[in-house]
Amino acid sequence: MSSSDIFASEVTGTMVLILLGGGVCAAVNLKRSKAFEAGWVAVAFGWGFAVLTGAYIAQPSGAHLNPAVTLALAIKGDISWGDVPVYMGSELLGAMLGAVLVWLAYYSQFQVTLRDPEAAEMKNANPGPVHGVFFTSPEVRHPFLNFLTEVIATFVLIFAILTQGLSANGKGLSTLGALITALVVVGIGLSLGGPTGYAINPVRDLGPRIVHALLPLPNKGGSDWAYAWVPVVGPLAGAAIAAGLYNLAWG
């Protein structure tokens, strides 16, 4: 597969992943949304369906949508290390575009929420009042434990993909594997998402965080860059551990 094919597939698939995943977060968190305060179960299932949709769209490239998946498949030996930068760069760009689309789709709700007097009082908060639409943050801030949570959650995701989700050529998710992975993501959200908001995907967090920092949102508050390394390094570490153990057991 050419680099241009990988780029087009991964950008589009990851864009839709973040549009639908960030969209459910916006629907639940922003005032004057019909799904306002729908709760954590809605968020977990919304992200699962987002993964399913993005993965089916990005089937031509193997539907990585996640640098943790790309890293694991490179360690396993199923994709060339030379393709890794193309995959990861495409995923980051797609995540940023998806976050911009969430902002556009919920523009009125962002304005209503952020111009509320309560939000105005939080304009210097770090993270800001609508951060949950764009990026994750822990309920109890303890960087090492937050990092460990992301490692464990991503290990589950990657090990599930490596053992039951890959296509015949091993370069990405199969059609059935996309469905299995989506259900695993729902399970991770319900079971392991409580402490940190389960990034389990570096670009899911980093791309929208960059967009949050750049968008002209009133009273948006800070983007919490001091925490940003956790949802990037944690998932990559979890993926490396999962791929390493897979190679030891079945390689």
Rank of each mutant, 00 (worst) to 15 (best):
F36S: 01
T70H: 02
Y227S: 05
T175A: 13
V140T: 12
A55S: 04
G222S: 10
I210C: 10
G222V: 01
T154G: 01
N66V: 00
P235V: 02
P143T: 04
G177Q: 06
N201T: 09
F134P: 06
I161D: 02
N146T: 04
G48M: 13
M88I: 14
I79E: 05
V185M: 03
L183R: 08
V69Q: 02
P67C: 04
I6W: 15
Q111F: 14
L157D: 06
N169P: 09
E139C: 10
A72W: 12
I188A: 08
A178D: 11
L206I: 08
P60N: 03
G23L: 02
N146E: 06
P85R: 06
V156L: 14
V43E: 11
V100A: 05
F49I: 06
V84E: 00
A160I: 14
S137Q: 09
A199G: 12
L192R: 02
G21S: 01
K171E: 08
S80C: 05
R204E: 00
Y198F: 15
V16P: 00
A226K: 12
I158Y: 01
P117N: 11
S4A: 14
L166E: 05
A239F: 15
A226N: 13
A226L: 14
A99S: 00
S80R: 04
L148C: 08
V230L: 12
V230P: 11
